[in-house]
Design a protein around this nucleic acid. Structure first.
Lengths: 236, 236
DNA sequence: GGCCGGTTTTGCGCTATCGCAAACACCTGG
DNA sequence: CCAGGTGTTTGCGATAGCGCAAAACCGGCC
């Protein structure tokens, strides 16, 4: 079943401290699958039958309110796990995962988790680290939403995206997957209108270059300044 | 060293699946300490030398921005762990913990964690669950901050506090530790002024009764309604 | 090559909420 | 019993950002 070369994944944090033989055994329990752009991998509320490791592509995890509003929980980059509902004791997925680009994932059945953890305790420890890091990031996001204005939050969001999934060009850093104004709005707790206005402003100042679902940071350092700008430091 | 009766903590989620003997061994590594009301247990940014289990009292975890603004990350109730920086791979505490009431805690040295986890893998699994749950709660909070108005967020916050630390009275549910308007503002991403206005309004309608660092929910069901109220459903 | 649907831009009025400031209440310690 | 210090209430003006609406854009598909 394992058509995946262990060397491709051996270095991932998830498998830190796992011997090659063990890794082999772990991978034997997984199958791989390909999800085309804009296809759903799992839906919020569905039975958590599997957990995933993204090999290639990009996945958006989003949470929907009863009234239909959405927020983007995070973007998953290659090498990251997602859909870990079971590890945290949830029977259903708390969010929807969608491939924003053609993506390839490894899939384990949820039922394999307890067994794997028992045989390879490092998995639990590594996952704990990962989840802990995400918790920290969530807290940072809450802090930002509580204390910063929209413009600063958007600046931070872009910087994070660039760091996580930026492709270096000679004229800047491009976010390496399709992302709309709406998506950014859902990451920062605002509306697509406001994001559009902000990006338009930045574009006029030559700080970014953007188009349909595409953003290039032309002058990242100026965005850093914007991100740190206190609410009242003079504008133009 | 372990003056703590194992039976007091055996039922806690942290120790699920741990044998009494093992629990005994774990507790032998801990010491207990008492923190008076309003004393700091650890400070954001300090070396994470210990992790904690709250036995009695209430602890507030808060995060501070470089510019001095704070948010309340959570309130810790008896039986919960806190200061788990090391389990998530952080060398320093990401927040400040302060006793809001006279509190008693168990303290383990951070250095004991790897050893304990190795001997008792259930600890890692249990902690993973805990941290996972907190992650979910964080996401819920982000969702609320993104989509709801302040009044609804305050309603949700109070309901959660009541659920976690509510003392049942015959005329309502009282939040069982001192909590100021400012604290609630820092939990909901608003200002103490706005919280004060909201609570005043509710008090006039007989929904809550409140005073200095004290809140009683007189009609919880009406608060539930407020929490779910869509932004535009008619007011008085 | 032109049509169609999703995306983005932009204008404009509105309002929830902030920010500041001042007056109060309440508790505590002396 | 009074003074000082927190915590709370409330008024009022300012405004960031929302919400709605319309138009312009863009890219792929037939």
């Amino acid at each position: 079943m394992a058509k995946v070369d262990t060397s491709l994944v051996a270095h991932l944090p998830l498998f830190a401290g796992v011997t090659p033989e063990a890794l082999d055994e772990i991978l034997r329990e997984a199958r791989s699958a390909r999800y085309p752009k804009n296809s759903a991998i799992f839906e919020q509320g569905a039975d958590a039958q599997s957990f995933f490791l993204l090999l290639h592509g990009h996945v958006r995890a989003a949470k929907t309110t009863p009234t239909g509003e959405q927020i983007v929980v995070r973007y998953v980059a290659p090498g990251e796990t997602f859909g870990l509902a079971m590890a945290i004791g949830a029977a259903r997925y708390p969010a929807t995962a969608m491939a924003v680009d053609d993506s390839v994932v490894l899939i384990w059945p949820t039922s394999a988790w307890p067994r794997l953890v028992e045989r390879f305790p490092a998995l639990a420890a590594n996952t704990l680290q990962t989840v802990g890091t995400r918790l920290q990031e969530s807290h940072t996001r809450i802090l930002e939403m509580s204390t910063q204005q929209v413009e600063q939050r958007v600046a931070h969001a872009l910087l994070r995206l660039a760091k996580q999934s930026g492709k270096k060009l000679d004229h800047g850093i491009e976010i390496d997957f399709p992302i709309s104004r709406q998506d950014i709005a859902q990451m920062t707790g605002t509306t697509l209108h406001t994001v559009s206005r902000i990006l338009s402003g930045w574009e006029q100042q030559g700080i970014v270059e953007s188009g349909r679902q595409r953003i290039i940071l032309r002058e990242p350092h100026r965005i850093v300044v914007l991100a740190e700008r206190s609410p009242d430091s003079g504008a133009a």
